[in-house]
Design a protein around this nucleic acid. Structure first.
Length: 351
DNA sequence: GACCCGTGGTA
DNA sequence: TTACCAAGGGT
């Protein structure tokens, strides 16, 4: 531990945030917040869910499209599942979209359209875990909750020069983060630590020279900042293989399927296909002269690499195999597809 | 704690 | 090209 010197860490970070806060579409900046403005809890919740394991750059356009189409939690709750899943397509981690809808319908149907303000009540809602509950309570309701995300973990590990590997070190890092959380402006403080981690105290090549915490930072003093936080070694990704079948009717309609809610790409639209395993068997949705595409789809998921062989055929008029759906030429939007399925379509289109 | 769950940017 | 990484949550 460090000694008991007067370290006004939260004061330093808030002063830095007042000058350097990024202008984000879901954020009420420090000046407006000083004037008494608070961000809309709906927008805070939506942005925080989108930002789970996802970069600000990737979220921006999705956030604009969602809020333009569904400006309130009631509007989102009333939306059909397929529209929401389609709008989420490409952003990844599709369980977030399914839980987003569940949560919106709970808030709209049982809570009068108002998000609860307490961490514990928020924590019970679908898709809201420890981090997101703390973030909404702090940012939307200015409660002194401690957020612990990847940024805060990194900043705390470096500030205190903690070498214990993640994720085992989480409780210790949370304890250190809680000790620094102020009663004054906790919402701005939470965003300040995360902004610091995102822009200065970055995973690689941290900009220690311009960091507002460079003097009290123990890792900066030890020269260990760039190697923290330590992480437990991760398992290598195996490669799986599979087949997908693109069948188009003469009028331009496609044979597709809605994937089951559980599991990979759950609830999303996709092409009929085989299992994805080391050596899958072909599994065409109907008998036909299936043609091979010259190139395979390559895609990497969280825990495996995938190589897909693409087969194409003409879908006979009047045929709709059991368990599949016909998507008309004018209803079909490639942007409704998860990326791996869109890659197969792009490959077909390029042939 | 272990495992599952996407994607695009970056070195 | 490969591997790592990001405002995590659910089971």
């Amino acid at each position: 531990m460090r000694d008991g010197k007067d370290l006004d860490v939260s004061g330093v970070l808030l002063a830095w945030y007042d000058r350097h806060a990024r202008d984000l579409p879901w954020r009420v900046g420090p000046a407006d917040r000083a004037a008494g403005m608070c961000p809309d809890p709906y927008r805070v919740w939506l942005s925080e869910v989108m930002l789970q394991q996802t970069t600000v750059a990737a979220v921006r356009d999705y956030f604009h499209r969602f809020t333009a189409r569904w400006p309130t939690v009631e509007a989102l709750a009333a939306a059909p599942d397929e529209q929401v899943m389609g709008e989420w397509a490409g952003l990844g981690y599709y369980a977030r979209a399914r839980n987003l809808l569940k949560c919106a319908r709970t808030v709209a149907g049982e809570m009068g359209g108002r998000f609860p303000a307490s961490h514990d009540a928020l924590r019970g809602l679908p898709g809201i875990g420890p981090y997101t509950a703390a973030a909404i309570a702090a940012i939307a309701f200015d409660q002194p909750e401690t957020v612990l995300d990847g940024n805060v973990e990194r900043v705390m590990a470096r500030f205190h020069d903690i070498h214990d590997p993640l994720p085992a070190a989480k409780p210790l890092l949370k304890e250190r983060a809680a000790a620094l959380t102020p009663m004054r402006r906790p919402g701005d403080y939470a965003q300040a630590v995360m902004d610091l981690g995102a822009t200065i105290c970055t995973p690689r090549s941290p900009a220690c020279g311009i960091c507002p915490l460079r003097d009290p930072c123990l890792a900066r003093a030890s020269g260990t900042a760039a190697e923290l936080p330590k992480k437990s070694p991760k398992k290598p990704k195996p490669t799986r293989h599979g087949y997908v079948y693109l069948a188009r009717r003469g009028d331009g309609a496609w044979l597709m399927e809605r994937r089951p809610d559980k599991g990979l790409l759950g609830g999303m639209l996709g092409w009929p296909g085989s299992d994805w395993t080391a050596a899958p068997a072909e599994a065409p949705p109907f008998g036909a002269e299936w043609q091979s595409l010259g190139e395979d789809v390559r895609h990497t998921f969280t825990h495996f690499h995938l190589v897909l062989k693409v087969r194409t055929a003409v879908l006979p008029d009047g045929l709709q195999p059991e368990g599949f759906k016909i998507v008309g030429k004018h209803e079909f939007r490639p942007s409704d597809l998860p990326t791996v399925m869109r890659k197969a379509y792009d490959l077909w289109r390029g042939q």
